[in-house]
């Protein structure tokens, strides 16, 4: 039995005018870390709210731990841990008061499930008398995770837990999630940071309520349908602008310290493509140009998959 299953879930708002989730189906395996990856407005939060029984879907069925999200909502509410996108703890209560409150909400205590939260709680302990509103972004997320874990849920829903958090805290947070996964907890997590997909077992890339692609991160990268090259040269701003006018390329954008240029796979060899681009840029007066084939990252995949959506 899969801990999370969605079948043809559709959700609209404002009497059908706004389509938030568009016929989405997927299922998550036992003790898997499954990532919903996509920008704001992709429909991630609606999916979370449907699975946590907070919203009713317009169409389709979904179940969590074998229970139907509409009919058996009460049973689901006792079994899952949920961390909404916004920081949703009481800012005027201290760290310890928040934890105690959420523990009693689930009829348990900090002591009873201390093993599960120990790793995270030791980092919070020095600040246990501090009001939650006065914690840093990273600490708030850790506290929220503790509160979501306090009743030992079998499924954990984390809606953009790392948004607005600095890179180091984000990394630590993912390490914690991996340890939880090892203890058998199934995790559905969403993020807008493309570089975080490496932490997930499987991911679904989402945009405008639809799943663009779903697989392991490696397989998604392997299924990249274009040829990608890395371009380096002087005067990056101008170089990018000029490269964008090269009509043979299907995409060109800044990526890290270099520029990524993508081409359709149409039988041309790498050398031909490189020479073509080089010639074009040299005719524009660029000299020290370096072009090499490169392996795409998830962001490149996302951009390739959403190409039709790009304006301008």
């Amino acid at each position: 039995m899969n801990p999370i299953t969605l079948q043809n879930i559709t959700k609209t708002y404002e009497k059908g005018k706004v389509l938030a989730v568009d016929d989405v189906s997927f299922s998550v395996n036992d003790s898997e870390m499954f990532g919903l990856i996509g920008p704001d407005g992709a429909g991630k939060t609606s999916i979370f709210r449907i699975l946590t029984t907070l919203l009713l879907p317009d169409k389709g069925t979904a179940s969590v731990c074998g229970k139907d999200v509409v009919k058996d909502y009460k049973a689901i509410r006792g079994m899952v841990g949920y961390m909404p996108g916004r920081f949703s703890l009481y800012q005027d209560l201290s760290v310890e008061e928040n934890l105690n409150f959420f523990a009693s909400l689930f009829n348990t205590s900090i002591k009873q499930n201390y093993e599960l939260i120990k790793d995270i709680y030791v980092q919070l302990e020095p600040f246990k008398d501090r009001r939650a509103g006065k914690l840093s972004g990273g600490m708030k997320q850790k506290l929220a995770l503790c509160c979501a874990l306090i009743h030992k849920p079998s499924v954990l829903f984390l809606d953009e837990p790392t948004t607005g958090v600095d890179a180091v805290s984000r990394f630590e947070f993912w390490e914690m999630l991996k340890r939880l996964k090892k203890q058998g907890i199934t995790i559905l997590v969403s993020t807008a940071y493309m570089d975080e997909v490496e932490h997930c077992d499987r991911i679904a890339l989402m945009q405008n309520g639809k799943i663009l692609s779903m697989d392991t991160p490696d397989k998604i990268i392997k299924s990249y349908s274009e040829k990608l090259f890395e371009l380096k040269g002087d005067n990056k701003h101008k170089l990018l602008k000029d490269t964008m006018t090269y009509s043979d390329a299907v995409g060109s954008y800044a990526s890290g310290e270099s520029i990524h240029v993508s081409f359709k796979k149409n039988g041309k060899s790498d050398a031909d493509i490189i020479n073509g681009l080089k010639g074009f840029l040299e005719s524009k007066g660029y000299q020290h140009i370096e072009i090499v084939p490169t392996v795409p990252n998830i962001e490149d995949c996302f951009l390739s998959l959403t190409k039709t959506e790009i304006h301008g």
């Binding site: 709210r49 946590t52 029984t53 907070l54 009460k74 509410r77 006792g78 899952v80 949920y82 909404p84 996108g85 916004r86 920081f87 949703s88 703890l89 009481y90 800012q91 959420f102 909400l105 689930f106 009829n107 509160c147 979501a148």
Partner: peptide, 13 residues
């Protein structure tokens, strides 16, 4: 407004 109601609702309380 704070989003805490969301968490309260997703609890057996």
């Amino acid at each position: 407004e704070m989003g805490t109601l969301e968490v309260l609702l997703v609890s057996p309380f």
